[in-house]
Computed example of a mutant assay.
Amino acid sequence: MTSPSSASNTPAAATAVPDAAAGGLRARLFNPAARQKLLAFASLLVLMVFFSFANSNFLEVDNLVSILQSTAVNGVLAIACTFVIITAGIDLSVGTLMTFCAVMTGVVLTNMGMPIYLGIAAAIFFGALCGWASGMVIAKLKVPPFIATLGMMMLLKGLSLVISGTRPIYFNDTPGFSMISQDSFIGDLIPALPIPNAVLILFLVAIGASVLLNKTVFGRYTFALGSNEEALRLSGVNVDYWKVMVYSVGGAICGIAGLLIASRLNSAQPALGQGYELDAIAAVVIGGTSLSGGAGTILGTIIGAFIMSVLTNGLRIMSVAQEWQTVVTGVIIILAVYMDILRRRKQ
């Protein structure tokens, strides 16, 4: 009679473990979320190859740095949108919230003459505060996210113009402020890689957001809100609290985007911001986050942000008119949403 220990050493038992491991690896590599990220990354490579052949200036260092700079701002905004969209919500105010945070930074640094660290803190604080306000309107007053954030978008646009007196606020008296976005810490260490600090900040925010989304209770409840909010409520979780937290975190991340764009322009432009939310939402959906909620990754969002930046830059460098660039962006948003619908049907 064969003992259990000797049975485990048979060839069939020995091959079962590698087969199971291989099956698990295939499942991870070819699940719908992974396929979407691979497809998005392949699309990014195709775009870069196409524009590099279409215009030789595309691969010049200055142009690539410009793409990285624009991706930094749009990528941070897209990360903020990712949290909200995973909960099956939407935030149309991220662009004007970014501008409002930049204006408040200008007020603190230029008008009040405070140190840089207080200006940075002000941007993040006011971003979180506005996100908290949006979350309260949605969670407590039961206003649909689309309407609540649309109202917040208009409110913040008006406040930015009122507080700034409809004039840009310049940071000429705060010379170190431009270092946040424009200087290159990596370039100082490795001269061959003049990657702007804004891109470094983007990846630091992405890493932090990914850890928050995948390794914490906050992240688990974020996914649960989008998957089945009523089931979460019936399990005894304070759904309203976590919903407000999601919008607050998103708002704080928008504050970081406000710092990046203000540092890049060396000014707070109160009329800037509206329209950024479309690129951010498009980047999120292209990256595989479902508008129906319950699914999404930060890595996919970053890839989507690079796709939007490369596409915009490539069309501009090919001298495509601005109005046609807007048309292309609109088509991409429609296609991204349609692909999301197809993914949901397959699941």
Rank of each mutant, 00 (worst) to 15 (best):
M48T: 11
M48R: 04
F50Q: 09
F50S: 01
F50P: 00
F51H: 03
A54S: 14
A54W: 12
N57H: 12
L59N: 10
E60M: 08
E60S: 15
V61G: 03
V61R: 13
D62E: 13
N63Q: 04
S66G: 15
S66Y: 08
I67R: 02
I67E: 02
L68M: 14
Q69S: 06
S70K: 09
A72Q: 02
V73Y: 04
V73T: 10
V73E: 04
V76T: 09
V76I: 12
V76N: 01
L77P: 02
I79C: 09
C81L: 15
F83M: 03
F83V: 07
V84P: 06
I86F: 11
I86S: 08
A88T: 09
D91L: 07
S93V: 07
T96K: 12
M98G: 05
C101F: 01
C101D: 06
A102K: 09
V103D: 08
M104T: 05
G106C: 05
V107Y: 06
V108E: 07
T110H: 05
N111K: 14
N111S: 13
G113R: 11
M114C: 00
M114A: 10
I116P: 01
I116G: 00
Y117H: 11
Y117I: 11
G119V: 12
I120N: 14
A121L: 15
A121K: 13
A122Y: 02
A122M: 14
F126M: 14
G127N: 08
C130G: 03
C130I: 12
G131L: 03
W132F: 15
A133Q: 12
A133V: 15
S134Y: 06
V137R: 11
I138N: 06
A139G: 00
K140C: 05
P144F: 05
P145M: 01
P145K: 06
I147T: 01
I147Q: 00
A148K: 04
A148R: 04
T149F: 11
T149K: 10
L150E: 10
L155D: 05
L156C: 05
G158C: 07
S160M: 10
L161R: 13
I163S: 09
S164F: 11
S164C: 07
R167T: 12
I169R: 07
Y170W: 05
F171I: 10
T174Q: 15
T174K: 14
T174L: 14
